[in-house]
Amino acid sequence: MLLVIVNGLALGGLYGMTALVYNVMYSTSKVLSFGTGQFAMVGGIVTAFVVLNLHLPLLIGLAACLVAGGLFGWASEWIAVRRIVAASDEHLWVLSTLALSTMVQEAMGLWWGTDPTPFPRLIRQEFAGAWDQKFWFPIVFSVVMAVGLELFYRRTMTGKVFIAMSEDSFAARARGVATDRMRSLSYVIAGVLGALSGFAAGQLTFADFSLGIGLGLSGFIALALGGIGSSLGALVGGVMLGMMIAFTDHYFGAEYQKTIAIGLLVLLLVVRPQGLFGTNRVRHV
């Protein structure tokens, strides 16, 4: 039972981190990127490649992972978002981020291969069970990431500028905020954090080119559960989904994971579309 709970928390941590990454990009651009889960996929595969194929130290793997995530984030904004955000047509950014996400996934599949590869151990460990690092890394990282982001939003000028942009981008521009540059920066941060989540949870997910779509979905469910824009909500939503999946896994088998997830999402959309901690009005129609 402890194992199930720990597994649920770990999965929840991963989903929560993905939800946090959604939030970072959403704050400056009002775009929910279809490629959000792909950052973790890229981070995981790059780390595995550097450590397992190139036989370089883990720290270099981590550095490469973060750099790759940052680059990917920057490219996402530049290619799929910048031109479209001006047109403010939701239709278009869903398609452009979906297209880019598909391209990256396929490119990684062609380069790295389509079989999930075990991820390197981060620290030496002689035992298995509930205290396994593969569980604790995502849990700890997710909490650190949420706390870090909250500090970033509350204590740093850049974080405050992100909030200002999310509230009123036009007014922020009138105050002298270079909104294009800030949006770009937020995507780089999102890429780095996303890659980091892939690094932290790599032992759980393996280095797998097809990880991104499903993770993007789970992260979105966590986000929708917790409410867009809330860091605490992202974590809580992630843990709720993670626990549900872990318990379903335990009692009914792994093949029903996504069915449960979608059931939860549907239920949520009916009962509370703005999420548990959300204040954003999601109804536009």
Binding site: M157, I163, D168, V177
Partner: peptide
């Protein structure tokens, strides 16, 4: 048009942001 979620003081600091990025 002020930035609702930010405090009054943070709103003012955003006003200084263009010249002083750190506030």
């Amino acid at each position: 048009r002020v930035f609702g979620p930010l405090s009054v003081e943070d709103n003012l600091l955003i006003g200084t942001y263009a010249r002083t990025p750190r506030g």
